[in-house]
């Protein structure tokens, strides 16, 4: 029963309570860059979920079996970012070959997934402690965390894209056009997601 509670806690936590964009401020650059159209937002979201999932797994393994045993945890930053850069390069090549239309649609934002704080962010978070169990994240918990955080990112991205598409037809004061109104929209979304704070389905183990 504890396992299911753990899984739900991580999933709901990553998607709603600690949403990467709306609570943790991770992944903002592409958030404001790609969210103008619903179609490109979907493609970007899915690419990010994929990269986050694989990045979480790879970096967890490297951390657990190489960095910690050899006491070089301070190399986390540089090793993780290199792994992520390599992964994005692979995804780019795969997309170019198997789905050229998506590749075109994402354009420059695809290589920019490398510098997406969300990907490196989730990799670093997974080296820490699961607040539900009180233990360091296991491999499956990291993978779940990676996937669900990506889903949360995509959720915020889709919501934003939907709103911005509608905003195109509104009369916005000149100074607020473009980014400022997007920020205000994001702020209102963050405000509503703040309502999830304090959500605790199960009391944590040993609490």
């Amino acid at each position: 029963m504890n396992n299911i509670a753990n899984i739900i806690s991580i999933s709901i936590g990553a998607v709603f309570i600690n949403n990467f964009i709306l609570s943790k401020f991770l992944g903002l650059c592409p958030f404001f860059g790609v969210s103008k159209k619903l179609s490109s937002a979907t493609g970007m979201g899915m690419a990010v979920v994929f990269v986050m999932a694989i990045a979480s797994s790879f970096t967890w393994v490297i951390n657990r079996f190489i960095l910690i045993p050899y006491d070089v945890a301070y190399l986390q930053t540089i090793i993780f970012i290199l792994v992520i850069a390599a992964l994005v390069q692979l995804v780019e090549m795969a997309l170019q070959k198997y789905s050229p239309s998506l590749y075109e649609a994402l354009g420059i934002y695809l290589p920019l997934i490398t510098t997406n704080c969300a990907v490196l962010g989730v990799a670093l978070i997974n080296t820490g402690v699961n607040t539900f169990t009180g233990e360091p994240y296991t491999f499956f918990e990291s993978l779940l965390n990676g996937v669900m955080s990506g889903v949360g990112f995509m959720l915020a991205l889709l919501l934003m894209a939907g709103l911005r598409e509608k905003l195109e037809f509104s009369n916005i004061p000149k100074g607020l056009e473009g980014l400022p109104i997007a920020f205000i929209t994001a702020g209102l979304m963050a405000l509503s997601f703040l309502g999830f704070a304090g959500l605790n389905f199960f009391s944590p183990v040993g609490g």
């Binding site: 100074g175 980014l179 400022p180 920020f183 702020g187 703040l194």
Partner: peptide
């Protein structure tokens, strides 16, 4: 308190950016 939480960050940068643009224009 909302200003030191997430929404506040968005609202603040929206305001500052809008002001900067207005002055620039």
């Amino acid at each position: 308190t909302v200003f030191i939480l997430a929404p506040g960050g968005f609202f603040t940068i929206a305001a500052v950016m809008a002001l900067v643009r207005y002055l620039g224009n």
